[in-house]
Simulated assay, not measured.
Amino acid sequence: MADPSLYTYPSPLEGYQGLEPLPNEKASDGKSFVNPPAEKKSEAYNSFVAPISNGIRGGFDVHIYFLQVDAEEVKFAAELWERIRREFPELRIYKVWDRPIGPHPLAMFEVNLFTPVEQFGAFIPWLVVNRGPLSALIHPNTDDEGRDHTQRATWMGQPLPLNLKLFKQSRA
């Protein structure tokens, strides 16, 4: 994982400064807060927030890994790949790599997600339940691949060490 101190972070309240204080009223569950209604839904429901790509590359990549020398994992990964292709045909799904490729330390296949609600919102919860013993890396696509694969990445299952040298070479 990249050292967070290597990056700068804009204030999460950018564009929301100077507004009325939020109420401290609790919701009926007694734990959460009542929020005032928004004038309109966040644009994040319709498109990925900058700097995440909304273009041909897709906003997020999901890499699903398996140990290529474990026959059970190979079989499970092949079955999962087929199920994803059948249940989510609108997603871009790549071939199954039977060996490490690029920065990825194990065999894997990749799925691209293009919409924040319809695709990301449906596929990621589905994958949480159906990925079995496999690890999955979920990362955004921006113009900073090193940061996308580290500081901005999310893992399901056991995180794996990536070969980050590739990203350092591409910046040289």
Rank of each mutant, 00 (worst) to 15 (best):
D98H: 14
R99F: 13
D29G: 12
P51T: 07
D70N: 15
F109G: 01
S28W: 05
F66I: 12
E72Y: 01
P103N: 07
Q119T: 08
A77E: 06
W155C: 00
A71F: 01
P140E: 04
R131A: 10
L166V: 07
P105D: 01
Q158G: 02
D70Q: 11
S53N: 14
G157V: 08
I56M: 14
R171I: 06
A153L: 04
F66A: 11
A44W: 13
A122Y: 01
R171L: 15
R83D: 13
L162Q: 10
G121M: 03
Q151S: 13
A136C: 06
V111L: 10
G121V: 00
V49G: 12
R83Y: 06
L106V: 02
Y94V: 11
V49F: 04
R152V: 00
T115R: 11
A136R: 09
P116D: 00
P116L: 00
A153P: 12
P161V: 13
G102F: 12
G102C: 10
G121Q: 01
E43K: 13
R86H: 11
R152T: 01
N130L: 06
N46F: 11
R85S: 15
A44N: 12
R86D: 13
I124S: 00
Q119E: 15
A27L: 00
V62G: 00
D143V: 06
A77D: 10
G30H: 03
E118Y: 05
L160P: 03
N112V: 03
S47E: 15
N35I: 10
P36Y: 03
G55N: 14
H149Q: 09
L134M: 14
G102A: 12
E79G: 12
G59A: 01
T154G: 03
K75E: 12
G58E: 05
I52T: 14
F109L: 10
P100Q: 01
L91H: 15
A153Q: 07
I138Y: 04
V111M: 07
P133F: 08
V62S: 08
I56R: 15
L134F: 03
A136I: 01
T115I: 03
H149S: 06
P140Y: 07
W126C: 07
K40F: 07
F109T: 08
G58A: 04
V111N: 09
V62Q: 02
